[in-house]
Amino acid sequence: RQGFVPAAYVKKLDSGTGKELVLALYDYQEKSPREVTMKKGDILTLLNSTNKDWWKVEVN
């Protein structure tokens, strides 16, 4: 499932696989259909980080 999360809630990881991955630093509950819920410690695939406030991710 793809959607947006606050950029301040995730940290980029060095995956070494060519995929950009991020680590969820905090729990986040989606507040609109365009967002996704994540739990602290989740590893997500980063799809787009051009917006400084909201990053598009895919929940694996």
Rank of each mutant, 00 (worst) to 15 (best):
E30V: 06
D14L: 11
Y28L: 01
R34M: 13
V10L: 15
L21I: 09
N51E: 11
T50S: 14
G16N: 14
R1S: 06
N60T: 13
K19F: 10
T37M: 05
R34V: 11
T37I: 03
G18M: 11
T50G: 09
R1N: 06
Q2Y: 07
V36F: 11
W54L: 03
G3Q: 01
N48T: 08
L25G: 02
E35G: 09
G16R: 12
E58N: 04
L46T: 01
D53R: 13
W54V: 02
K56W: 15
A24G: 03
L46Y: 02
G16E: 13
G3M: 06
P6M: 03
L13D: 03
G16K: 14
E20W: 10
K56M: 14
K19E: 11
L46C: 05
I43G: 01
F4D: 04
L21P: 02
K52M: 11
G18D: 13
N60D: 12
N51A: 08
W54Y: 07
E35Y: 06
K56F: 15
L23S: 04
V59I: 13
S32C: 10
K40Y: 05
P6F: 05
G3V: 04
N48F: 06
T45L: 15
S49H: 10
N51S: 10
A8I: 10
A8W: 10
Q2I: 13
G41I: 01
I43C: 06
V59H: 14
T45N: 09
T37Q: 05
V36A: 06
E58G: 07
N51M: 08
V22H: 04
K39T: 09
N48A: 08
K52W: 06
N60G: 15
T50V: 09
L23C: 09
V59P: 07
E20A: 12
T37V: 03
G18Y: 09
L21E: 08
L47P: 01
E58S: 08
G41P: 00
R1I: 07
Y9N: 06
Y28H: 04
V36S: 02
K12D: 04
Q2M: 09
D42L: 04
G18E: 14
S15W: 14
T17D: 14
K12T: 07
M38L: 09
E35Q: 11
R34H: 14
L47Q: 03
G18C: 14
S49R: 08
R34E: 13
S32P: 04
Q29W: 11
K52G: 09
E20I: 14
P6T: 01
E35T: 08
S49G: 10
L44I: 06
N60L: 14
T45A: 11
D42T: 06
A8L: 11
A24K: 01
I43K: 05
K11P: 02
K11L: 13
E20M: 12
A7S: 13
F4N: 04
I43Y: 05
A7F: 02
D42N: 06
Y26R: 15
Y28F: 06
K39V: 09
R1V: 08
N60S: 13
G18N: 12
K31G: 07
Q29R: 10
Q29V: 15
L23T: 07
K12L: 14
L47F: 02
S49W: 08
R1Y: 06
M38I: 15
A8Q: 12
W55R: 00
R1W: 06
Y9K: 09
K19L: 13
Q29P: 06
F4Y: 14
S15M: 14
D27M: 03
W54A: 02
F4C: 11
V5N: 01
K52R: 12
R34A: 13
T50L: 10
R1T: 07
F4V: 07
N60Y: 12
V22F: 07
Y28D: 00
V22C: 13
D14N: 13
L46H: 01
K39S: 09
V10R: 00
S49C: 12
M38N: 00
W54C: 06
K11W: 07
N60A: 13
N51G: 09
K31A: 10
M38G: 00
A8H: 12
I43A: 02
N48P: 03
E35R: 05
V22M: 04
T45V: 15
A24L: 02
V5H: 00
D53L: 14
G18A: 13
L13Y: 08
S32D: 11
W55Q: 01
Y9S: 12
Q2S: 11
V36D: 00
W54D: 01
W55V: 05
A8S: 14
D53W: 15
V59T: 15
V36Y: 04
G16W: 10
L47I: 14
F4G: 01
K11I: 13
V22S: 02
S15R: 10
E20N: 15
M38H: 00
A24S: 05
K52D: 10
G3H: 02
P33C: 12
V22I: 07
T37K: 04
Y28T: 00
P33M: 09
K52I: 11
K19I: 13
A24R: 00
T50W: 08
K19V: 15
K40Q: 12
T37H: 05
E30H: 09
R1G: 05
D27N: 07
V10A: 03
G41Q: 02
K56C: 15
L21T: 09
A8E: 11
T50E: 15
V10E: 02
T37R: 07
Q2A: 11
S49D: 15
E35V: 05
F4A: 02
R1Q: 08
D42Q: 13
K40G: 05
K31V: 08
Q2T: 12
E30W: 05
G3K: 03
L44M: 13
K12S: 07
G16S: 14
Y28G: 00
I43V: 11
W55M: 03
D27S: 08
W55K: 01
L13G: 02
D14A: 12
Q29D: 15
D14G: 15
N48W: 06
K11T: 13
G3E: 01
V10G: 00
L47G: 01
L47M: 07
L25M: 09
E58W: 05
E30Y: 04
K56L: 15
T17P: 14
Y26N: 10
M38P: 00
P6G: 02
K11Q: 14
T50H: 10
E20F: 09
G18P: 09
E58T: 06
L13M: 10
A24M: 03
D14T: 14
W55G: 00
T50D: 15
G41H: 05
N60P: 15
K39E: 06
K12M: 10
T45R: 13
V5R: 00
